[in-house]
Design a protein around this nucleic acid. Sequence first.
DNA 1: TTCTTGGTTGAAAGCGTTCTCATTATACAT
DNA 2: ATGTATAATGAGAACGCTTTCAACCAAGAA
Lengths: 341, 341
Amino acid sequence: MNIKRIAELAGVSVATVSRVINHPERVRDKTREHVLNVMHEYNYTPNWFAQSLNLESSKTIALLIPGIETNFFQQIISGVETVAGNKAYAVLFGQTSNLPTREAEFVDMMINRKVDGIIQVNSQLDLEKALSMQNLGLPRVHIGKNRILSNDTLCYLDIEEGALRMTRHLIELGHSSIMALLEETNSSTSEQMNSGFHRALRGAGHTVFFSSAQAENSVRGGYLTVQRLILSKSIPGALVTASDLQAIGAMKAARDAQIKIPDDMALASLTDSAVCSVLSPALTALELPSKKLGMAAARMLIDQIEGILPYVDMPHDLILQPKLKIRESCGNTQDFYEWFD
Amino acid sequence: MNIKRIAELAGVSVATVSRVINHPERVRDKTREHVLNVMHEYNYTPNWFAQSLNLESSKTIALLIPGIETNFFQQIISGVETVAGNKAYAVLFGQTSNLPTREAEFVDMMINRKVDGIIQVNSQLDLEKALSMQNLGLPRVHIGKNRILSNDTLCYLDIEEGALRMTRHLIELGHSSIMALLEETNSSTSEQMNSGFHRALRGAGHTVFFSSAQAENSVRGGYLTVQRLILSKSIPGALVTASDLQAIGAMKAARDAQIKIPDDMALASLTDSAVCSVLSPALTALELPSKKLGMAAARMLIDQIEGILPYVDMPHDLILQPKLKIRESCGNTQDFYEWFD
DNA sequence: TTCTTGGTTGAAAGCGTTCTCATTATACAT
DNA sequence: ATGTATAATGAGAACGCTTTCAACCAAGAA
């Protein structure tokens, strides 16, 4: 069934049917109703390709994301999908696996498919490709703190502030030896965490020993790291992990070696999750509003697409604050509960 | 840049350029090479809409999934994306939230966008819509056990067998009072679990008391249920939860009430996850190969699309078996380790 | 030389829309 | 009735591609 056939059946011209679809107000009530009836009767919907071929738009937004394995990314996807769905945009999904070449391929594909906008999470795109997108006037929103072009729109969680608050919390609890367990990648997230750590350290009244290590973002990664720490008898007073999975692994390694948390070593995670509060001891962690992040990014993108936001030469960042959830894994905290909750 | 311009620049006709793209063998080596060079020089890629408008295909597969919140679904998405990406298919993503109307809307949208195939997870589509898809000859693969049309292709995990094995395991450990905590929805998953439970019960040598309850799939759901159980002093000898989150909640409720696991109550989950093995006690759970499920579904779909599999009137199911991971939460099991691992 | 064969190529129709522009219908004032 | 402004409609080009069909060309056979 196509528009021509509908036009014949309704006894009007193709143009009129098209108008009924796109500019209903420009056609007489009676005609419109009649055409609508015929369309309905034959269960007609306009061919999306033909529409898009003309309009050079597709009612689609692209979401380029490193992976789908971690809770953080999953929440973002969910948030983007929710907002996009509400605004009748489809979302075309690309898993970049942190591979810049793969990301570039996806970008080409998305451009070719005339997506109306693109959300890039932790983008590692090279300048050239970013510029070519900019020249195309393709609305973009970055999730993550790495601004590629000077007028990129950014959405991110203030991880630095979170890391700072977490570290400050540990220092206030009296810890003078803190170790950070970051991810293996030298991502901007890791950099932000480091900045946060060091700002907190500088702000401490007294000297605090600080070290850091890297491990894969998994239970196994956390387990192996702490196991190694134990073997080399260099257990820090407090361990802060980038992810909850690492913290869980760390906790298990500690338990296996009879190291008591929080008495022998305090433990905290810079990523909260549903399980953190039910571990024993319950894990002090940073609650990241990651679904909100996805929703915010999608909304900003769609605002750009629909011309609600002026987006050229006007960076418009959105920064969401994480929230410190103080639980049991860092020691006696009754003094602090009331301060933070 | 369009095909006409390329044709001019290469000094050939539009048809020749098109042939270079689609049927390279039908053009003379020298010509082809020359055209290819021009295409490359101007960084030309054919307009996807124009192509698709002609070909009535889109190199896209649709993935309709209830949600993205649970690990199970996330793994499926990841698996589908992986296989699809390798075969150069894009994946268009739809979150149905278990709403049949929303699912139907997505199906319409996908049909209109001429997706080459569609993967439906836990589909609740009505017969009529399913039939219309069938009549369109649109390849489909269902993930889940609910066959809507008699010749649907199904991919699913043998949850029933898993539930059976889990229950049998508990019975062999000597439990004579077992309670199941299922999800709130009356999904086919719940049905399968029930079948598994009852088959195991029938197969038991002696009488086993069995009861079941429903709770939302979350830590909170598990917590509240067990709390209620404790208040009414009707704690079962063993509790089997549908999800790991529920089990974690249950574990916390038990701990809060000084109920010892596994001594006072055995606990097991029909969904394994990274945290299960690091809880204390480590949680006996069913390992579901859900990423493999997604990969298998995508492969089957693409095989259908590319005509490798005959798919009409020939149901072709793929059933993956879960694996029982026996840990600590169901009591002394040294006898069983060697049997199952 | 002339005919045949088969490989290369180009002209133009079609895919299903939207949009511009010209035309026709309607309403209202004269 | 007549003219005029405006609303409603239709004809046809354009979007960028694929494909059919006819034309062309070279090489070998008669």
